[in-house]
Design a protein around this nucleic acid. Structure first.
Lengths: 176, 176
DNA sequence: TATGAAACAGCATAAGT
DNA sequence: ACTTATGCTGTTTCATA
């Protein structure tokens, strides 16, 4: 039996999920233990398997298998550090609401993908409703924000209008 | 020498930052290595110190000290698992824009704090602009979403109007 | 399917250069 | 800031219930 190079299954195959590609929409049955695992990892993604197992009351080996299953099924999409944009040089956050011209809607998803790659862009939400999408962006200053909106949004001929909402506070909820 | 119970410094003192409390607004100088560390951890929060060090091209001990500094300074706010709401039983996401009555604005922050604790609430954004805040929420179904808006938002006498935007796609950007 | 033990590998941590 | 060295912990497999 060839020995695979020890792949820490909790850490590998993380990321690489843009959120834009269509997912097979499987239904996953999650029991109470699974929910506790998800809650614990949502709160602290760096919990070691041992500590995690103890926290939810199962054996480490069982815990490892459960978490691997959750990852393989796609319930656990990844593990990310939460960086404070203000302290990382981007103290000015905004949510820019954008409406497109009707003809440009076919290229919308590709456009969003490009936007998500731009520096400072934190989230992009494709919407149904009065606006077509929201861009959550963090900028170094007011000029930077203005430049972002003008150069990356308004400059696009498909963009009909933008509405910039400054963010005064952002509370990231604990999820459940 | 008393042996402190091995505290993995990368994992301790994580969480407990709601985002609502006022921060001392210190300026942090980040060099290129720091930015690479943040980017790497934002992409995969479970990278072990060794692997992280190798990835950014510094020694493990240096890496440990750097990351600890980033955490102590508040640049690294925490490490969170990214759970797919759809596969976890909440396939319907929305961003609800809310405007308050003028008189109710003084209690706004406390209100947001309460909202953030509700099941399904993922983000709350306090805004300046046409709306007072946005609530990013994930609901089990259309009824659940409706109930959330009515019971937790419209029911509040301070709420003047709500505008629910369904989310078709959510792209979480790679941060930088 | 979950558990527990055992073995191994790999990591955090603290010296010293 | 790097290198080295050392306990020690976490991961992993396998046998068992």
């Amino acid at each position: 039996m060839e020995k695979a190079p020890r792949s820490n299954d909790l850490r590998t195959r993380v990321g690489g999920q843009s959120g834009l590609e269509r997912r097979p929409l499987v239904h996953v049955r999650l029991d109470d233990v699974d929910h506790r695992l998800l809650a614990a990892l949502a709160e602290d993604a760096r919990l070691a398997n041992n500590a995690l197992a103890q926290k939810v009351g199962i054996a480490p080996s069982t815990c490892l298998a459960r978490v691997r299953r959750l990852r393989d099924e796609g319930v656990l999409r990844g593990f990310h550090a939460d960086v404070d944009p203000a302290l990382a040089g981007r103290p000015l956050q905004a949510i820019v609401a954008v409406r497109m011209h009707g003809a440009a809607r076919s290229r919308l998803k590709a456009f969003l993908r490009e936007l998500a790659e731009l520096p400072g862009v934190m989230n992009v939400y494709l919407l149904g409703g009065a606006h077509d999408f929201f861009v959550h962006v963090a900028a170094p200053d007011s000029d930077g924000l203005n430049d972002f909106v003008i150069e990356n949004l308004s400059a696009n001929p498909g963009v009909a209008l933008t509405e910039t909402n400054l963010i005064f506070e952002h509370v990231r909820a604990s999820w459940y």
